[in-house]
Write a protein that binds this DNA or RNA. Structure first.
Length: 716
DNA sequence: AGCACGCCGACT
DNA sequence: GTCGGCGTGCTC
């Protein structure tokens, strides 16, 4: 009797395909196996999610699986159900999620390779080629390349057509080959130390706080926790929990916002845990990724540390999932697959029956709210703040930097001490501000400043999409509204250079430090005291391990408050708090906050270091304005090369949502705030619902079949 | 996603 | 007349 296998493929398909299992492979195939299958004209690696004894549809002809690639199941049942749930919650095909969980080298598939024919070589010498053709031929002179690689290198408006013509002319040939996985020798299993050689001196308070989590780890059930407290205490608890989990031969997934946070951590852990640590992140080479993956798969890693990509670590016996710095925005970033790391981590913990521990000194209000409501908040207490905080009420016309802050910097420089400053240059947006009274027009429904859309002459609210014609008179005092463009961090650096010509000043911004070498150079330079003043955007706030300073400054955190984002209060709070993280301990340390909104609760409470004070104000506002966590928001982006197609997709989506009969508020479609990004048109639709199920129930069907570079942000 | 099929405009 | 652009639909 023939066996049939449901196989999910790494393609945008919404259902598995069924293949027949050749008799000689039936003993090998299992749910969770990788299989090499034919699809149309190509070969792909798919994943078995179900085995059936009965032929599902007698009329359909099923192709046989070409090869079962694994002797033992490649994916555990827990990983399968986790990725399935994840795919449903982020509206991505299951197969594409599974694909992301595997090192690319372990996914054989047919790949095209373009190579030069002798005729092509000759043509290059004779110079009878068009510009485009010559480019292609030159690239192929050394070795064959994939069509995709060539397309990226050669500027041609219709590259596939060009290639086809060249093949016809006999200049190149395109071959399709199956790239097989090289059967690597299995690494021998290293013995895992039964006990960590480590003295965990956890004080009574922390031990007590960790108690409920330990219970959950022991019981092997899922339960969420929010560790609320200073980094040092959180870490002590993590170590304690990890030791306990590992002692029970459990495994641990430790998520950090970005790789830059990992090295310090990894160092510590390597000294304490030794080899039982694996690291997964997107900058690994294919080979490194495969080695780490193997190590984890074979059970040689007790703890996996990493950002987003670690979410799919093939750990078994997972007992503890940690999300450190829960508040970090980069968890919500959508590079690659569009999902929130925190939500994914939670689903994984649920499916693996592991304790789910998020940690932060200033959690997102959504998370803090639900932790308190659900009684899974673990308060590790506050550190007594020793720093002196000075709120400088900024006066216009005194340059970008307040004279009082300049004097403080001068003082430090004379003492040969370093200074760290924060200035969060706002992105593209400019807004209107009254030249007389500093009034900034806000959306009356959203409590957000309106963005000035110059081209359309409109003021637009980015939350509710409402647009009003831009008026140039201040509604408050009748003064003239002027366009305020963000003074960038470079301008601030320039002013610093003028003020301190002797000072060595460097800028640390996300774009500046995009390349790792540049970033490392800046950080090393600061460490080596080759930099006197380091001024950075919020991205600097995530760089741990810099030598602490006695003076840190935050310039205009209120800029964030003008952002069209209902979480701007939280963001401003975090920016200010991140400055405190760089301070030398002791009473000599100072933080200067230069702001024109000293009375805003985000700024005031951040200056006081009072998260709870901030939270109470913020949650009140969220409730009043009906923002998360009191509602559920989805922001759906459609993007594509053709504006017409993108718009049609968005309109189709909106009409489906509206005719669903569900209780959903729809805003849009409207041109996204960044209307064109990388040559793609972007259109945006926002949905708001009272219940999460409503949102999920309406999103799935409404997005069906819409293939327009959609990406979805869900709040909370 | 690829890849085939099928339908319209401009040229060897 | 063909070639090749692009929109549509299918792949077990």
């Amino acid at each position: 009797m023939t066996l049939y296998a449901d196989v999910v493929l790494p393609l945008p398909l919404d259902r598995p395909y069924t293949y027949s299992v050749p008799p000689e492979q039936t003993h090998k195939i299992q749910v969770g196996s990788r299989v090499l299958i034919p699809l149309g004209k190509r070969w792909l690696t798919g994943f078995v999610i179900r085995l059936k004894k009965k032929r599902p549809d007698p009329k359909l002809k099923y192709k046989p699986i070409a090869e079962v690639l694994d002797d033992t199941p490649f994916f555990s049942p827990a990983i399968l159900s986790y990725t399935e749930r994840l795919s449903r919650s982020c509206f991505m095909p299951w197969g594409e999620i599974l694909q992301a969980a595997v090192p690319p080298s372990m996914l054989p598939r047919t790949r095209a390779a373009v190579s030069l024919t002798p005729g092509g070589r000759e043509a290059l010498e004779q110079g009878t080629l068009s510009t485009e053709e010559r480019q292609v031929v030159a690239l192929l002179a050394t070795r064959p390349h994939s069509p995709l690689f060539l397309q990226k290198k050669v500027q041609a408006k219709n590259f596939p057509g060009l290639l086809a013509r060249m093949q016809k002319k006999g200049l190149v040939i395109i071959e399709k080959g199956l790239k097989r996985v090289s059967r690597r020798k299995k690494g021998e299993l290293s013995t895992v130390p039964a006990q960590l050689e480590l003295d965990f001196s956890l004080d009574d308070g922390l031990r007590k706080a960790a108690g409920p989590i330990l219970e959950v780890i022991a019981k092997q059930t899922f339960s969420p926790f929010l560790l609320f407290g200073p980094a040092g205490r959180r870490e002590a608890v993590y170590f304690h929990l990890i030791r306990e989990a590992v002692a029970r031969s459990g495994r641990v997934l430790y998520l950090v916002p970005e790789i830059s946070l990992a090295p310090a951590l990894i160092d510590k852990y390597k000294r304490k845990i030794g080899d039982g640590l694996a690291i997964l992140h997107s900058r690994l080479t294919d080979r490194q990724r495969e080695l780490e993956w193997q190590k984890i798969k074979e059970g040689r890693a007790e703890v996996v540390i990493g950002p987003r990509s670690a979410l799919f670590a093939p750990l078994s016996d997972l007992r503890l999932v940690i999300v450190e710095e829960e508040q970090d925005e980069s968890y919500a970033q959508q590079e690659g697959l569009p999902f929130d790391v925190r939500k994914a981590a939670r689903i994984r913990a649920e499916e693996e029956k592991a304790a789910f521990v998020q940690g932060s000194e200033a959690p997102t209000v959504e998370s803090f709210y639900s932790a308190r409501k659900g009684r899974f908040l673990i308060d590790l207490g506050r550190e007594t703040a020793a720093a002196n905080v000075r709120l400088l009420v900024f006066r216009r016309a005194s340059g970008l930097i307040d004279p009082r802050l300049k004097r403080a910097i001068q003082d430090r420089l004379e003492k040969r001490e370093q200074v760290i400053l924060f200035y969060n240059r706002r992105g593209y947006a400019s807004y209107l501000v009254c030249a007389l009274c500093d009034h900034v027009p806000h959306c009356d429904r959203c409590d957000l400043s309106l963005s000035y859309h110059k081209k359309e002459g409109k003021l637009v609210c980015h939350a509710c999409r409402r647009a009003v014609p831009a008026v140039l008179d201040c509604p408050r005092c009748g003064g003239r509204l002027i366009v305020r463009l963000s003074a960038g961090i470079e301008a601030v650096a320039e002013e610093l250079k003028t003020a301190f010509p002797e000072g060595r000043i460097e800028v640390f911004a996300a774009d500046e430090a995009a390349r790792k070498e540049k970033k490392d150079a800046l950080l090393r330079g600061f460490e080596a005291k080759e930099i006197d003043i380091l001024i950075g955007t919020q991205s600097l706030g995530r760089q741990p391990g810099l030598s602490p300073v006695y003076l840190a400054g935050v310039l205009h955190p209120e800029m964030i408050l003008h952002l069209a984002d209902f979480r701007s209060g939280q963001k401003a709070f975090l920016l200010i708090r991140s400055a405190f993280g760089f301070l030398q301990e002791g009473e000599r340390s100072e933080v200067y906050i230069q702001t024109s909104a000293p009375d805003h609760y985000s700024i005031r409470e951040a200056a006081r270091g009072d998260y709870l004070g901030f939270f109470e104000r913020e949650i009140k506002l969220r409730r009043l304005l009906d923002y998360p966590p009191f509602c559920f928001l989805a922001q759906v982006f459609f993007s594509g090369e053709k504006a017409r197609h993108v718009a049609a997709a968005a309109r189709m989506f909106v009409s489906r949502v509206k005719s669903s009969g569900k209780n959903v508020q729809v805003f849009g479609p409207s041109v996204a705030s960044v209307a064109r990004k990388r040559g793609l048109f972007r259109v945006q639709v926002s949905l708001k619902t009272r219940r999460l199920e409503t949102l999920n129930g309406v999103l799935g069907p409404s997005l069906k079949g819409i293939r327009s570079g959609k990406s979805i942000f869900l709040f909370p």
